[in-house]
Simulated scan of single mutants.
Amino acid sequence: MTKTIAIANQKGGVGKTATTMNLGVALALENKKVLLIDADPQANLTHYLGIESKHEVDALTDGLDSIIERIPCSFKKLIRTKTIKTKNNETCTLDYIIANKYLAGTELATVHAVASEKIFTKFLKKIDITNYDYVLIDTRPSLGKLLLNVLVASDSVIIPVDSKNSAVEGLGEIVKTLTDIEEFYEKRVVVEGLLQTMVNNTNNAKEVTTTLKNTGLNTFKNTIPLLNEAETSYKQQKSVFEVKNSRLSTVYKGLALEILGGQCHE
């Protein structure tokens, strides 16, 4: 059965894209069929996957526009495949759908669409995600119409929270959005887990750890340390599993195993 997970936080720079990419690879290395979707007009995941242009066609924009404007679209053409070969000589493949800069305009168009909050749900049906074990969706840092669409279409959400108090302060907003979705759209989106990112050995990071555990929400045991290899990985357009002597690859593998085993702390 397919599980659709949004990677979401209305705050930027908390590690959403890195989580989407590297968790996706980690799950694929566990022999899971994975689809990654870039639902952010900034197209950072698209860049991470090796696509340089933000004007690229056959993107998520084309599929959503097709549904909004009721025009034909070859939805299967939107799905691309990438092969990953790790430094340990493991190989896996994952599918992905890119974003481009025109996605911002598509978000504006959803405001006037019929059943606008269901457009992304319809899109997932059009591309037929039933063959996948996991669909991971990278989202934009904004509580706008596009993020609402993604959340309504998702089974659960991973909320990355960086190790600053300011990041924790915004946590309540996305949790409220999930409550609103359940109340108004009769769809329960489970918090898969709070994921602490950019962790270092500071008092502030330790305070954030304590705060997350006291929220009453699922919190992942694995946390993402603050390491230069994360930026190196992104710039080289390679997952951390393709980076020599990567420490982060071990962490993301652990995160994948938590999700596969449902072992979050409550």
Rank of each mutant, 00 (worst) to 15 (best):
M1T: 12
T2Y: 09
G15K: 03
K16N: 07
T17M: 11
N22Y: 10
L23N: 08
A28Y: 02
L29R: 06
L29T: 00
E30P: 03
K33Y: 06
I37Q: 01
D38K: 02
Q42V: 02
Q42G: 01
N44R: 13
N44A: 09
L45F: 01
T46A: 05
H47D: 00
E52P: 01
E56W: 07
V57R: 15
V57C: 11
L60A: 12
G63F: 02
D65G: 08
P72M: 15
P72I: 14
L78M: 11
R80Y: 10
K82R: 15
K87L: 07
C92D: 04
L94A: 07
I98D: 00
I98L: 09
N100G: 10
K101Q: 14
A104I: 11
E107P: 05
L108D: 11
V111W: 01
H112G: 03
E117N: 11
K122A: 13
D128P: 06
D138I: 01
S142F: 01
L151Q: 10
A153K: 15
A153W: 09
S154F: 13
D155I: 08
S156L: 09
I158C: 14
I158H: 15
N165I: 12
G170K: 02
L171S: 14
V175F: 13
L178S: 13
L178D: 07
F184K: 15
Y185H: 15
K187Y: 10
V189D: 06
V190R: 15
V191H: 07
Q196T: 00
N204F: 08
E207G: 00
T209K: 14
L212N: 04
L217E: 03
T219M: 03
T219P: 00
N222R: 05
P225L: 03
N228V: 10
E229L: 10
T232P: 14
K235P: 07
K235S: 09
Q236G: 06
S239F: 02
V240K: 12
S246V: 02
S249P: 04
G254K: 07
L260W: 11
Q263S: 11
